[in-house]
């Protein structure tokens, strides 16, 4: 099957996209089939097929406007697809409300992180952790810290700031808090939208380690632009371009692929020309 991928010189992007389906014969935890999202006639997602297996750490890359965020929006119920299917553990996600999808075990972060500034760091995580409790149970006051909250707090390394309002956190710390809120919910699938964007070098490294740790017992999809980050922490990469899957494979192969270089590193070519 991988031989097929070699013959696609003349095929163009769409053919490649449909052929990549062949690369994943086993059914995955998350499956997107022939997905289309059209905004006022503009095809933001144009026939995407994607399979992510249980336990996988998948990187999703692509130039600005490639449709990466839109893809996550569709999976999490924020955007309704024009056509196509999205299934998670064999169940269709189409038409479900955002909170119902979270309850099925899919958590996400946002490109611009949103934490609840008036609540403390601990309260933010605690709020995330209790999402399955009936609302009447929440009428009790919180006494102490539950195990999953303590564990999440430790994983993201914000114990010292636990009682501070989240509003005082730095950009990087907010991203970690968001990730902590996610893992406290015990999701099966995590979708992280550019978690290291705007981070310092140290913060990126810290986030990379965090990611590696989380990926050990979760299925994770990460959108990322940063090539160095990709080289260090990615194994399987899917490249999105103009709403279609351009290439999929291990990080070295993807980086070496001329089509990827053309669209993704197009800037370099322009500079050279």
């Amino acid at each position: 099957m991988s031989a097929e991928t070699g013959e696609t010189e003349i095929g163009g992007a769409e053919t490649v996209a449909s052929e990549t389906v062949g690369d994943a014969p086993k059914s995955g935890l998350l499956e997107l089939r022939d997905l289309m999202v059209v905004f006022d006639g503009f095809k933001a997602i144009n026939g995407v097929n994607l399979t992510v297996g249980e336990g996988e750490l998948r990187f999703l890359i692509g130039p600005n406007g490639a449709g990466k965020t839109t893809l996550i929006d569709v999976i999490t119920g924020l955007t309704k697809p024009t056509s196509g299917t999205v299934t998670f553990a064999g169940t269709s996600l189409i038409g479900r409300k955002e909170h119902q999808i979270v309850r099925m075990g899919i958590g996400r972060t946002f490109q611009t992180s949103v934490v609840f500034e008036e609540l403390s760091v601990l309260e933010n995580i605690d709020l995330a952790a209790t999402f399955r409790s009936p609302l009447v149970r929440l009428l009790r006051r919180r006494r102490g810290v539950s195990d999953e909250v303590a564990a999440a707090l430790e994983t993201i390394g914000l114990q010292d700031l636990a009682d501070r309002p989240a509003g005082i956190l730095s950009h990087g710390q907010r991203q970690w808090l968001e990730i902590g809120m996610l893992i406290a919910q015990g999701p099966k699938l995590l979708l992280l939208d550019e978690p290291v964007a705007g981070m310092s070098k140290d913060e990126r490294e810290r986030t990379g380690e965090l990611l590696t740790e989380i990926a050990r017992d979760h299925t994770v999809i990460v959108i990322e632009h940063d090539m160095e980050f990709l080289r260090r922490y990615a194994s399987t990469v899917t490249v999105l371009h103009e709403g279609t899957v351009l290439v999929e494979g291990d990080v070295a192969a993807v980086q070496a692929d001329p089509r990827v270089q053309e669209v993704y590193l197009g800037r370099k070519k322009e500079d050279a020309a």
């Binding site: 909170h99 979270v102 309850r103 309260e123 709020l127 999402f131 009428l139 006051r141």
Partner: peptide
Amino acid sequence: HIVRSRFGRLLVAIRDGEDRVRFLGY
């Protein structure tokens, strides 16, 4: 009591970021 409970924290979270709260599963 409502304000100080977890429910009250959830309420403040909804006030400040209703859309984000949806993605916490509420």
